[in-house]
Simulated assay, not measured.
Amino acid sequence: MTVVTPFYDKKNQCLSCKHSYSTTRIRSRFVKLAGYDSDFCPLYQSDEVNPLLYNVSVCPQCGFSYTDDFTAYIPPVLKSELEKKISLHWQPQDYGKIRSYEDAVNTYKLAAYCALIKKEKKVTTAGLYLRTAWLYRKIDDKEQERRFINLAAHEYIDAYVTDGASGSMMSETKLLYIIAELLRRQDKIEEAAAYLSKVISKQHLSNEPKIIEMARERWYEIREMHKEMKTM
């Protein structure tokens, strides 16, 4: 009798060099979600059966790293840049097997660098930074978690200012909320409150009541914090 494990091999073809390779993925039926943090970080029941570890595909031949959020087409001039900045310096290595949290962090950093070179949407790069922060949170590296939360916040703000919600894969409600929450986690309370007020003021245009509720909860927390500071 064949024993089905949570892991399987997915066939990939590198978007850059066209090399064929396989990479590990997790069967969805084995994924047990326990909840979410206030910045949407998924909390899984198992540390090992965690899809976050396997989101990034890394070509073992050229080093090009990407997620399903990347666009498939790479213009020739950008392909040349990828070769110059990544492939020429790449030491062949295989991230296609079972990954540790350190391995996963490395794959996200590679993907973020590729996203910048390839000129992916800012929300795509922001998402890579945010997921890197989540992985650092999981291994309790607060300094690096804060660093990548800061990088993610800057990219999300640039995305909102430059393209607005129309240029994002997120709704305006979710984009404004995540900016506010990442600012709050950096103790930039006034800036966070300003973005939360945008979420709440636009609630009549939103069909995401859960995010509106989360925004109200964060707003309440900030208000209570201000009250405590005044009484100190």
Rank of each mutant, 00 (worst) to 15 (best):
T2M: 14
V3L: 14
V3M: 07
T5R: 04
P6I: 08
P6G: 10
K10P: 04
K10N: 11
N12D: 13
Q13G: 12
Q13K: 15
Q13S: 13
C14I: 02
L15V: 01
L15C: 05
L15D: 05
S16F: 05
S20P: 13
S22T: 13
S22A: 15
R27G: 07
R29I: 12
L33E: 11
Y36I: 00
D39I: 07
F40Y: 10
C41V: 03
D47Q: 13
E48N: 12
V49R: 04
P51N: 06
L53R: 11
L53A: 00
V56R: 05
V58P: 01
C59I: 03
C59V: 03
C62N: 01
C62D: 04
C62G: 04
G63L: 12
S65R: 03
Y66T: 01
Y66D: 00
A72I: 14
A72C: 10
I74H: 01
P75Q: 06
V77W: 07
L78V: 03
S80Q: 12
L82G: 04
K84S: 12
S87N: 06
L88K: 12
H89C: 03
W90S: 02
P92Q: 07
I98C: 04
R99M: 09
S100C: 02
E102W: 04
A104P: 06
V105A: 07
V105L: 11
N106P: 02
T107S: 09
T107H: 05
A111Q: 06
Y113T: 07
L116I: 02
K119D: 01
K122T: 00
V123F: 09
G127A: 08
L130M: 06
T132A: 06
W134L: 09
Y136E: 09
I139L: 11
D140W: 10
D141Y: 10
K142T: 10
K142P: 02
K142E: 12
E143A: 08
Q144E: 11
E145Q: 12
R147S: 13
F148R: 00
F148Q: 02
N150G: 15
I157V: 08
I157S: 02
T162P: 00
S166M: 09
M170D: 05
M170H: 09
E172C: 02
T173Q: 02
L176R: 11
E181N: 00
L182S: 09
L183C: 04
R185V: 06
Q186G: 04
D187H: 14
D187M: 14
D187N: 13
E190Y: 07
E191W: 07
A193F: 01
A193P: 01
V199G: 05
L205E: 14
K210Q: 08
I212G: 11
I212C: 11
E213W: 02
E217R: 07
E217I: 09
W219Q: 14
I222P: 07
M225S: 14
M225K: 15
H226E: 15
E228K: 14
E228I: 09
